[in-house]
């Protein structure tokens, strides 16, 4: 019944097929954005799906990754891969430090702390205007990157790079969830007091998961900067945290594959709606309400229901 969740190979195939089909269905630049926000949403989906932690502040780590990547590429002349690695590291280190404090609180208090820290990023950007560019963003980040001697010049090459980065992170998250470490995270999600009684250092495991998710968000921020050629301050605003959460929920947190479906849906729909009506976010809100009421597992679970129907059919034959 839960074929898509039980079999990582099937989930991988679905994700790979989606990534291949995407540039033929939508413009390559839109496809790149889908892959970038899917990576960001993976960080939310990992925390919520694997550990049961609701973070309202993943935009902070995405934003920090974006600024670190932008500043290093612009001022230090750092190459593509090193700058992205530093963005990942920055997101992970900051999330690890803040996380070690946040994970000691539970439920609503945990969520409020992620929200409060998430808010602080934007004000930090304004406060350090001469480094970050303040409200205008950080402009002048080089747009030409080489990867192993190949230049990433046209939109399709850019998409291939973004899709490859998302796919690597997807495989990593899938691997982690199915590992002994992932099983401890599932244990914490299911019953935290019992996990402690078994001898697991729960706070340390949660901090590690928060740091991992922060690293993923940081990478997504770096990718966004590579794609745009500048750092928009909106990357570190609260709206970004919100967007990542909405994408993760639309896609479904039961599998890391949901992040891609959610991002594709959100990005395409918001692109289409914004041309019709400037208040398109209201429609996204309505969509989200409908989804929560009628498809609580997100788009990914729709695929699962269809495959369940199919399995039942074949079982009858």
């Amino acid at each position: 019944m839960q074929a898509l969740e039980r079999s990582p190979n099937l989930a991988t195939a679905v994700v790979l097929a989606t990534l291949i089909v995407l540039p033929f269905v939508v413009p390559a630049t839109l496809a790149s954005q889908i892959a970038i926000f899917a990576t960001g949403a993976l960080s939310v989906a990992l925390l919520l799906g694997a550990v049961g932690l609701l973070s309202f502040g993943q935009g902070l780590y995405l934003g920090v990754g974006a600024y670190v990547c932008g500043i290093l590429a612009k001022d230090a002349g750092m190459g593509l891969i090193p700058a992205l690695l530093m963005a990942t590291l920055a997101g992970a280190v900051l999330a690890g430090i803040l996380g070690s404090v946040i994970v000691r609180r539970h439920g609503v208090y945990f969520v409020m702390l992620t929200l409060a820290f998430g808010q602080m990023g934007y004000f930090a950007v304004l406060a350090f205007k001469n480094v970050t560019g303040g409200e205008n963003g950080l402009t002048g980040v080089p747009r030409q990157f080489d990867l192993l001697g190949l230049s990433i010049a046209n939109p399709l090459a850019m998409y291939v790079f973004m899709a490859g980065a998302f796919f690597l992170v997807f495989l990593l998250v899938q691997r982690v969830i199915a590992s002994p470490f992932g099983s401890v995270l599932a244990a914490i999600r299911e019953n935290e007091p019992r996990s402690i009684a078994l001898g697991y250092a729960v706070a340390r495991y949660k901090t590690a998961a928060v740091a991992l998710a922060g690293g993923i968000a940081g990478l997504a921020g770096g990718l966004h900067v590579v794609f745009l050629g500048f750092v928009p301050p909106s990357d570190i605003e609260l709206e970004m945290s919100q967007r990542l959460l909405v994408i993760a929920l639309i896609g479904g947190i039961g599998s890391p594959g949901g992040a891609l479906l959610g991002s594709a849906f959100y990005t395409i729909v918001s692109e289409a709606l914004s041309e019709i009506w400037p208040r398109w976010l209201a429609l996204i809100a309505l969509l989200l309400i409908g989804l929560v009421l009628f498809l609580p597992g997100g788009l990914w679970s729709a695929g699962r229901r269809i495959s369940a129907l199919f399995e039942r059919k074949t079982a009858h034959e």
Binding site: R175, V176, S179, P180, F181, G182, S183, V184, A187, S195, L198, G199, Y200, Y205, A208
Partner: peptide, 16 residues
């Protein structure tokens, strides 16, 4: 398995 794994402290950190 989770209960046994808890005794092997390092095993819970294996993610690969």
């Amino acid at each position: 398995r989770l209960a046994v794994q808890a005794r092997h402290a390092a095993e819970g950190w294996v993610f690969w």
